[in-house]
Design a protein around this nucleic acid. Structure first.
Lengths: 337, 337
DNA sequence: CTGAAAGCGCTAACAA
DNA sequence: TTGTTAGCGCTTTCAG
């Protein structure tokens, strides 16, 4: 027979009474603070056990002014974007470090204005002990808000408009440079790029990396078409590129999704990959291994990104002053370039 | 100039004082309860505005005994499994309905024993007003625990060991049946299956659907190999199938990931798809459109699954008694069968 | 319609 | 090492 969970909550007072000690003594035991005699400590523990006492987190939060939760907030107009496996992986990373603590993870996908307002409120009302902010677009008001918030905030990725004090980012620029250098090294001479959204830090950084590499190689970095990270966007951008630069022989594409779209467009135009044009993507999504041909791409340490964000936040909450982090990316060479 | 967020929290008392009313009156206004004169109401609202008052959620929670949060818990031994886009999509669905309410979403990935313990505690201590539970394996102790929990619980998918009172599930059995019927209808006569984990409801249901279809068609439903939903598992299972039934001409595979592995194994063995053997997968993951050949598969309404789980939970929390839901699946015919 | 007062369950000075 | 005493900020009877 399992002890049935009692309907009403067992309070600390009841435990104290049962154990024959004061409430504060009981409290000390629960939080294993010092200044409790061994005898009393054991009595309390026994009472806890008998009664099935479990501390009330809310009451504790009210008393300590600490919520016991951190929030991961992502803003953006399109709810569907969160379905990106990228986020799932980040969450797994974060979760794995939080699991070692007593903090809960609350997820806030702020898409609608309503959602944004809630997030804003969350930041103002100390409903969380810390905040992780991801994927801020353009001049997201959230960024400013977060900055003047009194709770610790760490950014995942860097917004365009300012450099946050605390952030962890992937080396997008370096990854893009490596990707482009690979194109150069394999003999491509008329290289173009399809960018991501340029109102996002990652989109811009990848464009810069592309240009860095071509500048160093002494090649023309002017062949650029704008995409939006989506498959269709990639396809459209590729069409545009093909029309403007029919003789291009290499393309660095700022996301694998776009690269998949581009592959389609390339196929329609009758170009062979990697024969006539080599392409390299970014992100190393699962599908990248199954396209035809398999995609050469840049892999990000997504899980680590989440992990490090969480660690940094914890550090911050502990009163330390951690340094920002930039995580290395890695070129994964497959067959498309 | 933006009003600076004051460091200390503005309390209701301060608002009341500023507005020249009692605290209870102020409280009523905030929660727009009746019995407040128009004049007072406006005075309070003005004070709120002037002071930048925002209610303290924790205090409110303590007073009302309502946390203002629901948790989405997923248990399972492998942290990586949460990286599955499936979960991301479910979360998006849930989030979209929660956004209309004032509830926060806390995410609990209980992988380690530590994590499980925390979840357990969460359930016992009323740290949430409701719980959504997903992907329970075998005889997960969580299931029992959740069942005798005093907070409303809705299941995503059905565990094997018992039929929960409240759940929303996809029609796995029906989907598998449709998939298999398609194989039959396209002339396959020696059809096998690769199952998922059979200690999961979905895995078992898909096997049953397979058998249903073959029984109706009067064919042999005995060609089965066991997989674990993973790509490698699918590949291994396909090898096994090929060895045992070299003449098979169709395979229903309980997940696209496994189907991808199977495709690889089939290629190695020199079989053509769909020429010599037709295959159909399950889930319609993004990659399914890009395999060679593109995968015929069963699509689940994942977003709706999340959505309906949230709705059902809300309903439950409102004191109603909703009926379980089974969401239809849909066969997506591409080129692999 | 209005306000006083009694909690919600826990923590943390402070005094003993 | 102990226990007493105030709170934390909000809600909610219950009289008026």
């Amino acid at each position: 027979m399992v002890t049935d969970t009692p309907k009403r909550q067992v309070t600390l007072d009841e435990v104290a009474e049962r154990a024959g000690v004061s409430r504060s003594a009981a409290s000390r035991v629960i939080n294993n603070a010092p200044h409790v005699s061994r005898a009393k400590r054991e009595a309390v523990l026994r009472a806890v056990d008998d009664l099935g006492y479990v501390p009330n987190a809310t009451a504790r939060a009210l008393a300590t002014q600490q919520v016991g939760a951190v929030v991961l907030a992502m803003s953006g107009e399109d709810p569907a974007m969160f379905a990106d496996p990228f986020f799932a992986e980040v969450v797994v990373g974060i979760s794995s470090v939080l699991e070692e603590t007593d903090l809960e993870l609350v997820l806030s996908l702020a898409t609608s204005t309503r959602g944004q307002a809630r997030l804003e409120q969350l930041l103002r009302t100390h409903q969380a002990d810390g905040v992780m902010l991801m994927s801020l677009h353009g001049d997201d008001p959230l960024a400013t808000l977060a900055n003047k918030s009194s709770v610790p905030v760490v950014f995942g990725g860097r917004p365009l408009t300012f450099e946050p004090r605390y952030y962890v980012d992937a080396d997008n620029r370096g990854g893009a440079r490596a990707a482009t250098e690979h194109l150069v090294a394999t003999g491509r001479r008329r290289i173009a790029t399809i960018t991501g959204r340029l109102d996002e830090g990652a989109g811009m950084a990848r464009l810069q990396g592309f240009q860095d590499a071509l500048a160093v190689a002494g090649q023309d970095g002017g062949r650029v078409a704008h995409g939006d990270f989506s498959e269709d966007g990639g396809s459209r951008a590729m069409d545009e590129l093909l029309e403007r630069y029919p003789d291009l022989d290499g393309v660095f594409i700022a996301s694998d999704q776009m690269a998949i779209g581009a592959l389609r467009a390339l196929g329609k135009s009758g170009r062979s990959v990697p024969g006539e044009v080599g392409i390299v993507g970014f992100n190393d999504i699962a599908t990248a291994r199954h396209t035809a041909p398999p995609l050469t791409t840049v892999s990000q340490p997504i899980n680590s990104l989440g992990r490090e964000m969480a660690r940094m936040l914890l550090d911050l909450m502990a009163g330390n002053d951690p340094s920002p982090l930039i995580l290395p990316t890695r070129l994964v060479i497959r067959e498309s370039a």
